[in-house]
Design a protein around this nucleic acid. Structure first.
Length: 469
RNA sequence: GGUAAUAUAGCCAAGUGGUAAGGCAACGGUCUGCAAAACCGUCAUCGCCGGUUCGACUCCGGUUAUUACCUCCA
């Protein structure tokens, strides 16, 4: 039984998919006007872990996400650089793929761009107008927020206050165009000649921000989807508006479980351009050689909690991950000499941790608790690796379990997949025989030589073992 | 002002109405030619004040602090 926290009800709820064994989930993707920042990465990783866990639990997950590739920020950026909007959008959409690859984020089943669904958006907006939920005004089309029963409940905002707040921020022109300050744009008229635009029944224009997600979720998934994810800041206005549009359009419930990830702070400060701490994944990967550590930090914090990203927290993550890697290697090293069979005592201990891991993850993806069971498995592995005799079934079971669980967090390559040359292999052999004959000067010299090319040699009761730094 | 979240050891971070997971650091051992890794052990009474209860860190009320959202934002 899996439970997830639903932002709409503010409670952990028992998860039940609409179609048994299948999950339709939609996660809001980035606006492609710049390299993605660590917050975008966190969101992608959080829902990547959700997806991987549901897959581990046997679900087939249909994962749809978008690129917002038409928007004010993109238009602005294009103007600044003197290129057209699609040049900007394509560049940063490609960069997204590049930057998420080292972080081992699974590609979406469908990754759609707003500009690919313009005809669908127009049909959708037309329908909203026909149903009386939207109205055209000077080429813009606005959604009548108050006509939609329950507007604002996702973010638990009071309608009157929202109206006041909205009224205070709008300029006079907007107030004139809107029937009510709280109404939001589903279609925006083009006012400048150099802006990207599409023809529509309301004149040249482009879609509002929220409409693309409503359209894609319906087009690629269904009227009612199982899970909708995104950053907590999207609960209002983005998801609030999506929900209003979608339910007004279909007359059906839009989303069964709304899941929102927490923010990433950088050095204990909110990430923002004004503070100059806008950390892009692109830069991080350039200056940090172990992307799996970044992934580890982002994936093993419970998804709703804030994360502080700093050199310190990253260093802690590195040490923790290295402990897992080392334990994995320590046992892997014994695999070749393992006897046939298994050890029941260890097997029982492994099963206990599997149960613990699963119940932690079942509880709204409690990754910190799940991680604790991985550490228990690592201790088991280290201890077992020191046993005089080991059995292959148990060695494999331990290794497989650790790898499987880390895989749910999206961490791969635990053993470092070492590659050495024949020459280096000969050196290792030479060192082994030097040690056997107690020629420690020679063995130390070879160890030093190997360490200079990144091969770390360690001696154990079971003989020499090595790994790459 | 409104709506929420969070406050647990030096640090990161779980958790439960019956006396606090895990990781790092620290300290003490074991193993060891050295180095490294590992193993064993030690290490908190849960922001503050009240209340409910046989018993609360875990429920209720209040209070303090920090943070986020209230149409740029993952």
């Amino acid at each position: 039984m899996i439970q997830v926290y639903n932002t709409l009800t503010r409670e952990k709820e028992i998860f039940k998919s609409i179609t048994p064994g299948k999950i339709n989930m939609y996660v809001c993707g980035p606006t492609v006007y710049n390299y993605i920042h660590i917050g975008n990465a966190r969101s992608s990783i959080a829902f990547d872990v959700v997806r991987r866990y549901f897959e581990y639990r046997g679900y087939e997950v249909n994962y749809v996400s978008n690129f917002t590739d038409v928007d004010d920020k993109i238009i602005k950026r294009a103007r600044e650089e003197g290129v057209d909007e699609m040049t900007i959008a394509n560049k940063y959409a490609d960069a997204f793929e590049e930057d998420t690859l080292p972080l081992n984020i699974k590609p979406a089943t469908v990754r759609s761009r707003a500009t690919e669904v313009i005809p669908d958006i127009i049909v959708f907006v037309q329908d909203l107008i026909e149903k009386g939920y939207a109205y055209e005004s000077e080429g813009d089309v606005y959604f009548r927020a108050k006509k939609f029963k329950g507007y604002g409940i996702l973010a638990h905002q009071d309608l009157n206050e929202m109206t006041e707040n909205a009224a205070g921020r709008l300029d006079d022109d907007e107030l004139i165009r809107k029937e009510d300050p709280i109404d939001f744009a589903v279609w925006k008229a083009t006012h400048e000649k150099d802006e990207i635009s599409w023809q529509s029944p309301w004149g040249d224009g482009r879609p509002g921000w929220h409409i693309e997600c409503s359209v894609m979720a319906q087009k690629y998934l269904a009227n009612t989807i199982d899970i909708h994810g995104g950053g907590i800041d999207l609960a209002f206005p983005h998801h609030t508006n999506e929900m209003a549009q979608s339910e007004a359009h279909t007359g059906q419930k839009f989303v069964n479980y709304w899941m929102h990830n927490g923010f990433v702070n950088v050095n204990d400060q909110k990430m923002s351009k004004s503070l100059g701490n806008f950390t892009t994944v692109h830069d991080m990967l350039k200056h940090y050689d172990d992307p799996m550590t970044i992934r580890f930090l982002l994936a093993t914090t419970q998804y709703r909690r804030p994360i502080n990203y700093s050199p310190d927290t990253l260093a802690q993550a590195r040490v923790a991950l290295d402990r897992i890697r080392t334990g994995y290697r320590n046992l892997l090293f014994r695999l070749n000499e393992a006897a046939v069979g298994q050890d029941d005592v260890v097997e029982i201990a492994i099963e206990k941790q599997i149960t613990f891991f699963e119940s932690a993850m079942d509880d709204d993806l409690n990754t910190p608790n799940a991680l604790a069971s991985v550490f228990e498995l690592v201790t088991l592995a280290n201890r077992y690796a020191e046993d005089k005799a080991v059995h292959s079934n148990t060695v494999k079971h331990l290794l497989d379990t650790i790898r499987l669980f880390m895989g749910i967090f999206g961490i791969t390559g635990l053993s470092g997949e070492p590659q050495i040359t024949d020459m280096q292999k000969q050196l290792l052999d030479a060192r082994e025989s030097a040690r056997a004959s107690h020629d420690f000067d020679l063995s130390d010299q070879i160890r030093q030589q190997l360490s200079e090319v990144g091969i770390i040699v360690e001696d154990t009761a079971q003989g020499q073992r090595w790994h790459q730094a």
